[in-house]
Design a binder for these strands. Structure first.
Length: 581
RNA sequence: GCGUCCGUAGCUCAGCCGGAUAGAGCAUUUGCCUUCGAAGCAAAGGGCCGCAGGUUCGAGUCCUGCCGGACGCGCCA
């Protein structure tokens, strides 16, 4: 991954060390940059930091270095030119060597074998965490897109990953939903989409409660508390209704994940976290946790994290209590070394408190707990709110995307392609559009979700990436030879071809950086750059109409490698591109 | 009030843990389909990188203050 950079570092180091000057800083990979314009070169070495030790202006140093390195250049087949430009020494790498180093490794798949690059860890990624009895909307999809991508990326760089879901299947919201369902519902449950319908029941419940006059409201709230108590008793008619309706929601979630192609290895349920109470009581006995105003929690004031409430004054557990239990289970039962939580930014403080509390309770793994926090999905008119009823539900989004893609692009193929292929192609494109849109931005930032914009299939979109992929497929259908890893890469002479090779070469580094920083958007960005370079090259470098077969072979290898990286890269962000569209 | 995050082109966003004239997409304008898919490519216009200081050879990037926005700050999740 650093072969060319390391070569440059070695050459520079040898040259500078040979001068025997004291006070010269150590040169490492971090010094080497990429010039802003490809015409300048492929790698650059800035000389500013040598100015002090060498007591010369950077531009003079650059000039002298470039001159002194000509000998090394002649002996080094990886490099074709070393020139100074102002305070920089620019290096040009051999396209042939770059291609020879990059393309065959992609074509035989070895480029995708990353094991050994990082210390292998057993890591759990917890994501999605939907609440049953509530509707699943576009805001929830950002979480799934981020979490699932992170799972795939971590595996790609060599970790053992357990993908976990954590279902919110207890709590006041469910009591409200079931209260409305039993006392105020006017329709029978539908045969299909019962999950979303339950969400409507919940929304109707909150509306009814909010709109009720004070006296009536009090009655309602008493009824809701009674439902909650019956739920906590874990038996009886209300409990059985909970079991039944809970299953409707879970069924809906499974359908969504299936459609999106998201994977979960383990499912945790909030209803299964009773252990939390014991952990708190144990912490109290050990004097680590404290009582306060009748409640119990952890005093995190010394760490600037306030007081972390863990048990209510009435003795009931909280979300925080269950998070301790969940962490305990993850550590003890699944033996993980590292734990990543994909949860919205609004819980930043909460997870700082959880991690610090785990540490103080003695869990060594607390040091390897991370919160991948992400911003809200906003509508152009503002925040989405299920209470206000201005959410875009999953099914609505899926239906709108399907309708758009079918009518604009796929209907003409009806009859020519099988209905099954049309449906599957449509799904893949819709998933690509949504997942890419949810991932391409920095997780920390809010996303403005404008449905009309998301339907558009142009520009920096998942559709564009799929389109690039299908064009390569198309080329390979028309030129049905096997790509030759030993093709003559000196024939890749066009600037576009070279830039494409360079993009392919850089891809793995982007994925590693993305995994390290927990930023799937870096993979998305790298894929867009790659697709862009391919689309450019596509217009200048025909395979079918190449000057001769040798040139065609070189280009075919280049395109086939691009296809392989696109496919693997898209897979990393959960996108399966269609072969044609 | 305190804390965290964000502020870059008309709009939506990149900007590689400090480096060369700040880049995309959308929108606007203009070229390119009898030659591998135009969901594409090429090009143009459009910027006191919120404001003011500071550190540095060098700041969109780091530090401080201010302005604007989002989120959070004990019995919700």
């Amino acid at each position: 991954m650093y072969r060319f950079v390391d070569t440059i570092v070695t050459i520079l180091d040898r040259e500078l060390k040979g001068r025997g000057l004291p006070g010269l800083p150590e040169i490492g990979r971090g010094w080497i940059e990429q010039p802003p314009e490809p015409e300048l070169g492929d790698y650059a070495f800035p000389c500013f930091r040598l100015a002090k030790a060498l007591r010369k202006p950077p531009a003079v140093i650059a000039q002298e270095l470039a001159a002194a390195l000509q000998g090394a250049l002649a002996a080094e087949p990886l490099l074709t030119a070393i020139e100074s430009a102002g305070p920089y020494v620019n290096f040009r790498v051999s396209v042939e060597e770059l291609a020879r180093h990059t393309l065959p490794a992609i074509l035989d798949g070895s480029s995708f074998e990353q094991s050994g690059r990082v210390r292998r860890e057993k890591v759990m990624v917890e994501y999605s965490q939907p609440n049953t009895h509530k509707a699943f909307h576009v805001g929830h999809m950002r979480n799934v897109a981020l979490g699932d991508a992170l799972v795939r990326m971590m595996e790609y760089v060599g970790h053992e990953v357990i993908a976990a879901n954590y279902i919110g299947d207890v709590g006041a919201h469910i009591a409200k939903c079931l209260w409305y369902y039993r006392n105020h519902r006017t329709e029978a449950p539908p045969a299909a989409n019962r999950g979303e319908w339950l969400g409507e029941m919940y929304t109707a419940a909150t509306r009814l409660l909010e709109a009720a006059p004070p006296a009536e409201r009090k009655t309602y709230e008493a009824e809701v508390s009674r439902v909650l108590a019956q739920l906590e008793a874990r038996e009886g008619e209300v409990y059985r209704l909970w079991e039944e309706t809970r299953a409707w929601s879970l069924e809906a979630f499974h359908e969504i994940y299936r459609w999106l192609g998201a994977r979960f290895d383990h499912w945790f349920y909030e209803s299964g976290m009773e252990l939390g109470r014991q952990i708190v009581e144990d912490g109290l006995r050990r004097g680590i946790l404290v009582r306060s105003q009748g409640a119990a929690g952890m005093d995190l004031e010394p760490y600037g994290l306030g007081f972390f409430l863990l048990l209510k004054a009435d003795g009931n557990t909280l979300y925080s209590t269950k998070d301790l239990a969940l962490a305990h289970l993850k550590f003890e039962r699944y033996g993980i070394e590292r734990s990543i939580y994909v949860v919205g930014t609004e819980q930043n403080l909460h997870f700082q408190q959880v991690f610090k509390t785990l540490e103080l309770l003695g869990y060594a793994q607390a040091a390897r707990c991370q919160h991948l926090s992400y911003g809200l999905v906003m509508l152009p008119e503002g925040k989405m709110s299920s209470r206000a009823g201005n959410v875009i539900l999953f099914s609505a989004l899926r239906d709108r995307m399907n309708a758009y893609i079918l009518s604009h692009y796929l209907e003409p193929h009806r009859g020519d392609w099988s209905d099954a292929e049309i449906a599957e192609t449509c799904r893949r494109i819709a998933v690509a559009a949504i997942r890419y849109g949810m991932i391409k931005q920095d997780p920390a930032k809010n996303i403005v979700f404008n449905l009309e914009d998301w339907l558009v299939s142009e520009g920096d979109t998942g559709t564009y990436l799929c389109y690039a992929y299908t064009r390569i497929c198309s080329v390979q259908r028309l030129v049905p030879r096997e790509p030759d890893p030993r093709a003559d890469f000196t024939l890749l002479t066009h600037e576009n071809e070279k830039r494409l090779v360079r993009e392919l070469y850089d891809f793995n580094r982007s994925v590693h950086q993305a995994a390290e920083q927990l930023r799937p958007n870096l993979v998305a960005n790298a894929l867009f750059r790659l697709a862009k370079e391919f689309s450019r090259t596509y217009t200048t470098s025909s395979v079918k109409n190449a000057e001769n077969d040798a040139v065609g072979d070189a280009r075919l290898a280049l395109f086939a490698a691009t296809r392989a990286v696109l496919e693997r890269g898209l897979h990393l962000i959960g996108i399966v591109p269609p072969e044609r569209m």
